[in-house]
Design a protein around this nucleic acid. Structure first.
Lengths: 120, 120
DNA sequence: GGAATAAATGAAGAGGTCTTCATGCGTTCC
DNA sequence: GGAACGCATGAAGACCTCTTCATTTATTCC
């Protein structure tokens, strides 16, 4: 029941306007260099804010603002541990979405064509 | 050599600032309802502009603007066929990125937790 | 309690995005 | 050649986003 040459075995996408809005919002959470850096840092494990800020080279305030956005969208969680608030990716869907996004983006960058159906 | 519980077998993401900018740009191309609708329509096959506009309920001009952006980023191609210019997804990476993005976003929406490592 | 550390927050401003409107360019058909 | 069709394009405006600065809240240690 696979698509064979199409590659992986995800169902083909079907979107109504509402779903599109939601997906767009989620993707927009990944669509900024600062947040991508934050998320990939979290991909390596839980991190307190200051450590995140240090790792990605941003000010603490800026990181907090972005973390709030990611929290509100349910992509990360923050739990207090002493003075620190340790952030973490919410679940595997976030981690995988991140990995796939980077994987495919980098392949698009390289111009590795893998055309589906030239229809010409 | 798999990650086992981590799910699929993509390598864990590693990004420097430059790569992050590129990935962010690519993701931003997907991070809008209008473009998601356009791309998912193209997921079903090649389409001329007017047909796209009709399918997604946008004005022709707006669709053309978005198609230019997608073209410039290498996500779609457009080839003239008579009076029409038929657009198509560039390759399988685009199709898969789209599918995965929708798949994971919708699962995040449903709140299907699949937590990796709660870390305390 | 008071100082120090960690993080969140609000306001404000620079810059970007998306749509609409008006128009221009290329193609087909008669 | 001229009209109609299909698409691209530029300008303009409303709106959103991201960062910085200043301040506030929560926690620990003495």
């Amino acid at each position: 029941m696979g698509h064979g040459v199409q590659g992986r075995d995800r169902p083909a996408a079907r979107l109504d306007a509402d779903a599109a809005t939601h997906v767009a919002t989620t993707l927009q959470a990944l669509a900024t260099p600062s947040r991508l850096l934050i998320l990939t840092e979290l991909r390596n494990g839980p991190r307190p804010v200051t450590e995140l800020a240090d790792a990605v080279g941003m000010e603490q305030s800026a990181v907090s603002h972005q973390l709030r956005l990611l929290r509100n969208l349910g992509l990360v969680t923050g739990t207090r541990t002493g003075r620190n608030i340790v952030y973490n990716l919410y679940d595997n869907h976030v981690a995988q979405l991140l990995d796939e996004a980077i994987y495919h983006s980098e392949h698009l960058r390289l111009g590795l064509t893998d055309r589906p159906d030239t229809a010409g």
